[in-house]
Design a protein around this nucleic acid. Structure first.
Lengths: 150, 150
DNA sequence: AGGCGAAGTTCCTTGAAGGAACCCCGAATG
DNA sequence: CATTCGGGGTTCCTTCAAGGAACTTCGCCT
């Protein structure tokens, strides 16, 4: 399968897909997020091919989303979220919310999220960074920005 | 390339990836969101193979994210967001925010989002659905939910 | 009758994912 | 000192999805 590179499109979605759009990448990110930081852990948790996992980890490190860090005198490594990676996890939280709502089935959501600040089980709610009111897909108008394609 | 099906994992991220995780799908969703609703429009905008676009559109319709709607007496169709699809666009908005912040380069973001309610250029901010305070990746604890794997 | 244009479909090529086996390195063990 | 062990990969072959161009279908329009 040859795959088109999205990154040179003038679109932040396309560029973001170039970072985590490949198969498995979001799940790798999730595993690191929840504390599965080692190659063997991630591989056996996801059942991903070792070859593909190697490629994905390299790519995520290259993109500055993960950091590869030795944890032993032996050549052993853990992967950790960078700041860039931590912010990317917000995308996962929105995916979780949507999946919980539309795909969970009668058993309910597989995982619950407790907001540490208030102690409540909650989900993420998108709000306007300017006025704080809800900001959903049809609450916005799109305008060309400074980096728009010439 | 054979590709693993994620949907039967007990994970809302994996399930969501089964809906929009394939290459091009998020960009197709974006196009429909911004008003490019016809096959030819999407195809020429993205430069996607017609075969793959057909597959993606079918899949998104099957999943209830898009709706295929005739717009002429001739066999002509437009694709529109369902409610399920509209809510999925929130994920795109978060991707945009992240891409704008980390990948936009000196030219700045290619597109600006104006919140219709307040009129300001803004981005989406994740907040706790319970207390309304910011809710980022490291503001939550994860607990097993009712639908957790047996 | 002939042409057109939207919306696909067919078919061949290329290359990425799957998967199993293998390798390397340092530590610990006999 | 030789041997095993376990983490973290690498190699290699197979399979199947994406790329891409050509072709088809259907109803309107001249």
């Amino acid at each position: 399968m040859q795959r088109t590179q999205f990154g040179d499109m003038s679109c932040s979605i396309a560029r973001t897909l170039d970072v985590i759009g490949e198969p498995w990448s979001p799940l790798v990110l999730r595993d690191v997020w929840v504390g599965m930081t080692r190659f063997e852990q991630i591989q056996s948790d996801l059942g991903i091919s070792r070859k593909v996992l190697t490629e994905r980890l390299h790519h995520l490190v290259e993109q500055g989303v993960l950091e590869r860090r030795p944890y032993d005198a032996r050549p052993r490594y853990e992967y950790h979220l960078t700041e860039k990676g931590t912010e990317l996890v917000e995308m996962l939280m929105v995916m979780v919310k949507w999946g919980d709502r539309w795909l969970a089935g009668p058993a309910g959501p597989p995982v619950l999220y407790r907001h540490r600040a208030c102690g409540e089980i909650a989900e993420v709610d998108p709000r306007c960074s300017s006025c704080g009111e809800p900001m959903h897909a049809d609450d916005v108008d799109l305008l060309p920005g400074p980096g728009a394609a010439g």
